[in-house]
């Protein structure tokens, strides 16, 4: 195994550990922190099932953003839908044999994936040109978007500009997943794309991107409003 492959294999496992470990640590931290007072945003459902039902819809369609800022919703929602297709498109590289539905989905998934730069550029320009968003945007906000953009562009380059050795890539990725790493294809565009994804993995748990999990733990949206039906004692006791 070449030194380069060795480096990438090591970095990949480290990245996986940081990503999953870091994210779990952050989310477990939220879950473990008490919420002594009941603070659901009302009106709120009065049963667990009701809250799940309500959030299933409002989270699936980004309802609050939809009623709050329509153009941001257009950019943000389409970007997240694209993420789903990008994920589905890449899944075939990590499992063998590839299930039929994933194969059937490839053209559609490619179409969506190819659109990724559009919402990202839209969201970047929004931050640059609308005075309110310019005021609140910092380096970190641009960094996340630019990182996504270059990941997307390098990925598209692999498809449309400089084809990688897809079989070699799959063997390498499968090797990583199955814990028996093989030689990495030394294809520059692939190496760039892969490196950026690793960077994203390292960055994710330390950034605002934890909203991906945090959204499910927010007390205002997930607490059941059953003050009439239940007695809520302070989990911490007296203070």
């Amino acid at each position: 195994m070449s030194a380069l492959t060795l480096f990438y294999v090591g970095t990949s496992y480290l990245c996986a550990a940081v990503f999953f470990g870091g994210l779990s640590y952050r989310l477990a931290g939220y879950a473990a922190t008490p919420s002594p007072l009941r603070i659901p945003l009302t009106p709120q459902a009065t049963t667990v099932f009701g809250v799940i039902k309500k959030n299933a819809v409002s989270m699936a369609v980004f309802r609050a953003l939809f009623i709050g800022e329509r153009w941001t919703w257009v950019g943000g929602y389409s970007l997240h839908v694209i993420f789903v297709f990008v994920f589905l498109r890449h899944l075939r590289l990590f499992i063998n044999p590839v299930p039929e539905f994933l194969v059937d989905l490839q053209p559609l998934a490619l179409l969506f994936a190819a659109l990724l730069p559009l919402p990202v550029l839209f969201l970047i320009s929004r931050r640059m040109y609308v005075d309110r968003y310019r005021y609140i945007s910092s380096g970190a906000d641009y960094f996340a978007l630019v990182l996504l953009l270059v990941i997307g562009l390098s990925g598209l380059a692999l498809k449309f500009v400089s084809h990688s050795d897809l079989v070699g890539v799959k063997e390498f990725l499968l090797g990583l997943v199955l814990l028996s790493p093989v030689e990495m294809p030394s294809h520059p565009a692939f190496m760039l794309h892969f490196s950026l994804v690793l960077l994203l993995g390292f960055y994710f748990p330390f950034s605002k991107l934890v909203h991906a999990g945090g959204v499910f733990l927010s007390p205002t949206t997930t607490q059941v409003e059953d003050n009439r039906e239940q007695i809520h004692a302070n989990p911490r006791g007296g203070n």
Binding site: R26, G29, Y30, T33, P34, S35, P36, I39, A64, L65, G68, E69, T72, G76, V130, R132, Y133, I136, S137, S138, D141, K208, V210, H211, G214, V215, L217, S218, P219, T220, R236
Partner: peptide, 24 residues
């Protein structure tokens, strides 16, 4: 306080600065 109140800890950390609240 961030260890006392889940709301504070989570709200400090998960904002993506989408700006939906800005003019509300």
């Amino acid at each position: 306080l961030k260890e006392k109140y889940k709301s504070l800890k989570l709200f400090m950390e998960v904002c993506v600065k989408c700006g939906s609240c800005a003019d509300k």
